[in-house]
Design a binder for these strands. Sequence first.
RNA 1: GGAGGGGUGGCAGAGCGGUUGAAUGCACCGGUCUUGAAAACCGGCAUACCUUCACGGGUAUCGAGGGUUCGAAUCCCUCCCCCUCCGCCA
Length: 426
Amino acid sequence: MLDIQFIRDNPAVVKEAIDKKRTGSPDLVDRILELDHSWRQAVTEHQELKTEANASAQQIGALMKSGQRDAAQKLIARNTEMKSRLAELESRERSLHANLNGLLYEIPNIPHPTVPVGRTEEDNQVVHEWGKHPSFSFTPRAHWDLIEQHALVDFDRGAKVSGAGFPFYRGQGARLQRSLVQFFLDTATRRGYTEIQPPLVINEDSARGTGQLPDKEDLMYEAKRDGLYLIPTAEVPVTNLHRDEIIPEEELPLKYCAYTPCFRREAGSHGKIVRGLNRLHQFDKVELVQFVHPERSYDALEALREDAEALLVALELPYRRLLMSTGDMGFTQAKKYDLEVWSPGQEQWLEVSSISNFESFQARRMNIRYRPDGGGKPVVLHTLNGSGLALPRIVAALLEHGQQADGSIVLPAALHPWTGFDTIGP
RNA sequence: GGAGGGGUGGCAGAGCGGUUGAAUGCACCGGUCUUGAAAACCGGCAUACCUUCACGGGUAUCGAGGGUUCGAAUCCCUCCCCCUCCGCCA
């Protein structure tokens, strides 16, 4: 959420952001400012009466002590009368504040000036491309064929046991996944990230902190009885790690990496790219999360992006980097890159990483601040995260890129120390 | 799951209906002293919000929410968390 003070001072900027993000009506800002005004009046009124009541309560105490019961009784009577009025003012203040807060949750983050203004994914900019599309002496097959040939993943039995989108990985398929997780975590650790194993379920407060609630609850599986949600990404527990904390400035930046399964209901997602490993309800991902000083968050974004891209280079997978446009970047981000790998068997790009700077948007919701060196007021810090990387589509790309004429699959050298084998099949 | 104990400021730890936002100690910051340091002494030291040009003033917060009362950290109810014992168990 945005700072109410910022909205008071820069209503035009906020309106422009709503417009650019195509996420609601700019009128919202006017309604917020009106509500804010009424709320502040209500606060003042309530507090004034409360001040009066507090003062006479103290007088009553003094009178009682000195035995002036009659004088005390008078004041007591007056305070008793005041009570209902006080309750009224309080509930008015509360409801105004709740309304105001509700509206504040509807305001999107402000896009960074470098973000292209656009309406849809068409307006995202390809800002970088690495590697060549491979050429084959045969027609490359899609990964679902290769998976079937080598019995790497069992979709049908997964559907029987759990449902569509919950596959079994087996044999070299399972081993490949585990190797990738290890490779990603080890690389991140070497680059200064602290490895985390977070809880795989989260409570409501945490879901609210990173912005899954109130709007995107359809995304998550819910354990209703216990008020818990299965994590849609490690971003949620790892970012909430420092919720309601004040971190000494000297400890910044805090960098974490975490491997977790991710659970997504993907309600209402249809279309062409849902086959095979392209879209699942449960998938593995290594997530990178950073807590940084506000002045350094854009440097951190580029470094984080680099951390993710280095993995693709090591895996010899051609990729491109997209700078997301205002219309396609999401509600909570200030700036976001997507990384996509080329899938020769499907002849399309597959998104394997999304790297974002949230600036103070998440941190304000979660109340995560740092204490400046030498003291002073706590300041809201900046949070960032990026996938490093999402597994299934990487697996798909590796299989498709490594396939040989005889159907065997050669894996990139960087992976051999983790897999223990260099070829799958024939 | 059952029985009991407990949650107070960065930490430790008092308070158990009336100037208590909260004693005291430690830590931390500033100062005096000292050639320097330590010790000693003096002062400062929570968070959020409202209000004020400013100095300042005010409100709220002692796990969370509700209640009793003129007045609650202190009494009552519900929930959460931690500890001890028992049960169950990877």
